[in-house]
Design a binder for these strands. Structure first.
Lengths: 225, 225
DNA sequence: CGACTCCTTGACAGCGTTCAACAGTAGTGG
DNA sequence: CCACTACTGTTGAACGCTGTCAAGGAGTCG
């Protein structure tokens, strides 16, 4: 299922969180994985770092009885597994067919030990941003009701996808639910309710497309009942 | 309320997460704050980093209507605000009377730009550990019920406090509730229920003391209903 | 003593989960 | 082309966990 290629052809421009490193093609190799297949598993040795080129990835932790908490969705340009741990702390799965670049973690950290200050700052910056996201996520999970959760999710994705008219969700309702600490039925009801209020329209097959009509009213829903 | 002193007397040994830096007394100044008073506020400029010497601190985010999510409790030895952001992303308050050391963030980061590799690794390590904690916390908040939450909280604090017999909580039930995304009544009920099961005993004024009788049964409660 | 904070417990309601049925779409194979 | 299956999403109904409201006890402090 995994195809390894050399990335000597230049890919189409993708926003990158590792701009300076990303420019060095020799540093990265390319990998294509099918939707639903694993990129890496929790507690596995973390030998590589990854950068999404196209597609989407979910990272999650799981309890022994199957309950799943998705920590983040990763889209084109995002970097995964940058934090310096010997083993991965969560599982990463492609949500749809996805292209990633990967590089030996050792090669990156060799730079740091050689005193590459810009690279060190960059890495610290990425970890900090990941932390920032997690901390905001804590507030949503611990203190917001289901409608606020779904509204917050939509606003986050709207900001990140930057698609002016219709945003097409790569993930299922269950994924959204596991991201927000609720159930797929509750997510579906919240979306229907927002459609009822004419704040958005669900379009396309499986209602994966979402047209936002009123972002400011959606933002109100995200912080008050 | 704030007292600034030079820390030329050696403090009693405290586990430190910033060992090499902590040894340099000239680097740090000492600060004593009363329980309930703020160390720094959300969105304030982040000019200092802090290290708890004695006492306990809570860091939290708050919604406009007052709902509060505590991201972490910080105990003796813990470092706060190490992540490189221009402004603090949460509020930090002393829970009880607390002694902290603080240092100009600029002085630490000046080292990093000068290529102090061990310091850079150390900082990255601290941020990563903070991230690790937040990610585990996400799972608790999103996917565990109230009994599991309280059990997980007790196990975490038991591990960190390292008091063999009775652990004395510095925080109120409300603090615990705001840490676990629930209410103080629910926390109280969970603790009573665990006492009923003879897994622990509540002791002392305000039942702030907790004697764990059966850590393994408590651990069972933390992951299954 | 009185005011205050913190904790516990009970009663009740409500939000969200659970269970179930159904619709729409895609893929497969006869 | 159609039957069949699998997957996804929506909606309804009932239950239950947890939040809300309230009362009371215990300790602290001025």
């Amino acid at each position: 299922m995994l195809v390894r290629v050399n990335s000597n052809k230049t890919a189409k421009p993708v926003p990158s969180q590792l701009s300076e490193l990303a420019r060095q093609d020799a540093f990265w190799s390319e990998l294509k994985i099918r939707g639903g297949s694993k990129l890496f598993g929790e507690a596995e040795p973390a030998d590589y770092i990854y950068q999404i080129r196209e597609g989407a990835v979910r990272t999650y932790k799981q309890l022994s009885d199957g309950r799943r908490q998705i920590g983040a969705f990763h889209l084109a340009g995002d970097v995964l597994a940058i934090e310096n741990c010997a083993t991965h702390r969560c599982t990463a799965e492609a949500i749809v067919d996805t292209t990633v670049w990967f590089a030996k973690r050792r090669r990156l950290f060799a730079r740091l030990t050689k005193g590459d200050i810009p690279a060190a700052n960059h890495v610290r910056d990425l970890v900090t941003r990941t932390l920032e996201h997690a901390e905001s996520h804590l507030l949503v999970l611990g203190r917001q009701n289901s409608l606020e959760k779904v509204a917050a999710f939509l606003l986050e994705l709207d900001r990140r996808l930057e698609q002016p008219d219709v945003m097409v969700l790569p993930m299922t309702r269950r994924d959204i639910a596991d991201y927000l600490g609720t159930t797929l039925e509750t997510v579906s009801r919240a979306l229907s309710s927002l459609q009822e209020e004419r704040i958005l329209s669900l379009v396309g097959t499986n209602h994966r497309g979402i047209m936002l009509h009123d972002r400011s009213r959606l933002a109100q829903r995200a912080t008050s009942v």
